[in-house]
Amino acid sequence: MQQRPGTPNDRAHQPLSTRIDRWQRRAAPYLFISPFFILFAIFGLFPILFSAYLSLQVWNPVQGLGTMRFVGLENYVFLLDDPWFWRSMSNTIWIAIASGLPQHLVAIPLAFALVMGVRSLRHPLTAIYFMPYITSAVAVALVFSTIFGTQFGVLNQVMAYLAQASWSAWLFGGLADTLPINWLGRAAYIKPAISILVFWQFFGFNVVLYTAGLATIPRTYYEAAQIDGASTRQSFWHITLPLLRPMIFFAVTFTIIGNLQLFDQPFILTGGTGGTAQSGMTAAMYLYRTGFEWLEMGTAAAISWLLFLVIGTLTVIHFYFFGRSGLETRE
């Protein structure tokens, strides 16, 4: 039997330096990528596994690690029967849809108009739309909580003006009786108020995604359509939308994941309480309150896993219906 080079037997006869050199060549790649894996293990993998373990325990962190007590699935059973958990879940989905859907319905036509329209304005306008996205969510929410104020808020004052002024009374006059609206105090208005803020903050991000997506569509398609006599509207429906599908899929996935984890905006707008009747309390907020205000770390971990389950399920459904067809058009 022929001896292959590199087997232990063979290596034993080689000088030490060659062996070190060989070892280095084999180990170096692993060494070079190890920082990522070490950091990921500490800051990514460990917390994930620990939170899964934690969700099966009852643990008050102030009492120390020793007080952790195994309770099996009790936290999950507790949550599935918890009125505030279900309320926070339905709030989350309500806000995700009410703020997410309009983002795309506005961003796609807007991006189309930016790319097709006055090209010199495209970049400055995109930058302006993008500004809210890179502004701190907390700062934005603080400003909006002033805008939404009942007595002194700008929004109510503008609406009151519109309801009175002669030129707009025919349209807004009906509002006069309901003004001023207590945006952040009434259960019925809290979710819309949060949705308005989230929509405003994130639609610019989608505009940027869609303008980038539109730029990849060759102009020759539009020119060909124009020669065949297609209107702008026809170009939009039959060229832009189908070719934009991969980007739509990507942007909607982002929205699903981001909106279901909403925390800063409702937290600031409702002063950390979730608002009247918890109508502004999202699942992420409930998780935070349970864990860090009420010190029920086990239950909080269980909320995080149930929330993950919901986000995972919705993403899979989205992928199943839109992902494959979306990705196919690329080929």
């Binding site: 207590n182 105090g185 009434r186 259960a187 309480t273 979730g274 608002g275 009247t276 009747a277 918890q278 309150r289 205000e293 009420w294």
Partner: peptide, 20 residues
Amino acid sequence: DIIANEIWQSAIGEILAEGR
């Protein structure tokens, strides 16, 4: 007390704001 106070605040909020 902390949790009870938060739940009370939520209840009184609903009673006042929503007329519950």
